[in-house]
Simulated scan of single mutants.
Amino acid sequence: MGVYHAGSRAVQDLVGVRERADHVGRSLGQDIKVVAAAFLELQPLLVVGAADPGTGGVWASALTGAPGFVRATGPRRMSVVTGARHGPLAAALATPGTRVGTIALDPRTRRRMRLNGRLTPTARGFAVEADQVFSNCPKYIQRRDSYETPAGRTPGTSRRLTGLHADAEALIRSADTFFLATVHPGGADVSHRGGNPGFVHVTSPRELAWPDYSGNAMFLSLGNLRADRRAGLLFLDWDTGTTLQLTGEARAEFAPDGTRAVRFTLAEAWWTPAALPLRWSPPEYSPANPPANVGE
């Protein structure tokens, strides 16, 4: 399969960026280069996205560990050491051949790296044989200069939700970052979405919307949604470690003025207090962030 499937091509043509997308697409490869391997080994956080093999729901989940828990163990192989808690992605991460998307994002340097491929469970976690490896620009990434591991933080009990409660709505409305997992017939992907707090709108207890800001013209996420509307969202509290994982369906809307928005309908959510052991410093918002219309 080429760099782009039919869904991404359809969106590129609709927006008129096919030539630019072809240029950017040349940066995608299968090899984990030396600089990418060095970047991975410094990260305490990896976000993984996949479809549950039983229900078919797409989820995004945050995995954490001491730097080195994610590392390149071959020219096209990334290995991850994980604990026992995987939430709604537990079955996917234990199933050989699962198509997964991953993103390692470092708020300290505003760098991100994506690696998508096929999963193999291992004795200590899992490995991914890469189909796509690439980096993105720092646009819309908020800088967080440091992190710590607070003593005594213990994950709370996860709660399954069919609609957003007040704390979940508050987390979304205050978010400056979330992660979007999508799938297509040949694979999976996780992307980063960032903006000033208020850029994600809660339009009902089961519906969200956010603007699709101008990016790298590849349209991997929107292209996937064109082919398959299943999606998973991950919101995290960078201070308390609380996570909100959502699964449902999403669709992109294209306005005559060239702006775009995505609307998401919730099927199920997991709310886990103190799920992550990391506490990050307050953000310095990206200068690329457009003003958020919090009243929309």
Rank of each mutant, 00 (worst) to 15 (best):
G2K: 02
V3C: 08
A6Q: 14
A6N: 14
V11H: 11
G16E: 10
G16M: 03
H23N: 06
G25R: 15
R26I: 08
L28N: 03
G29H: 11
V34H: 05
V35L: 13
A37T: 10
L42H: 13
Q43C: 02
L46R: 00
A50W: 02
A51Y: 00
W59H: 09
A60W: 13
L63C: 05
G65P: 08
A66N: 13
A66W: 14
V70Y: 13
A72K: 11
T73Q: 14
P75N: 11
R76Y: 01
M78Y: 09
M78Q: 13
S79W: 01
S79D: 11
V80P: 05
V80N: 06
V81M: 00
V81H: 01
P88Q: 08
T95I: 04
P96M: 12
P96K: 04
G97C: 06
V100S: 00
T102I: 10
A104Q: 05
D106I: 06
P107W: 05
P107M: 05
P107R: 04
P107S: 09
T109M: 03
R112E: 10
L115I: 11
G117D: 02
R118W: 08
T122K: 07
R124G: 01
F126Y: 11
A127S: 14
E129M: 10
E129I: 01
A130W: 02
S135A: 13
P138M: 03
T149K: 08
T157Q: 10
R159S: 11
G163R: 15
A166M: 08
F179R: 05
A181G: 12
G187E: 04
A188L: 01
V190R: 04
S191Q: 01
F199D: 02
T203H: 06
R206Q: 14
L208R: 07
D212C: 06
Y213E: 09
N216C: 10
N224F: 12
N224Q: 07
L225A: 07
A227Q: 10
A227H: 05
D228P: 04
G232S: 13
G232N: 15
T240G: 02
T240N: 01
R251E: 12
R251C: 03
F254A: 07
A255Q: 13
G258M: 09
R260T: 13
R263E: 08
R263K: 15
A267C: 09
W270F: 13
A274S: 15
A275H: 05
P277T: 07
L278G: 13
P282Q: 15
Y285T: 05
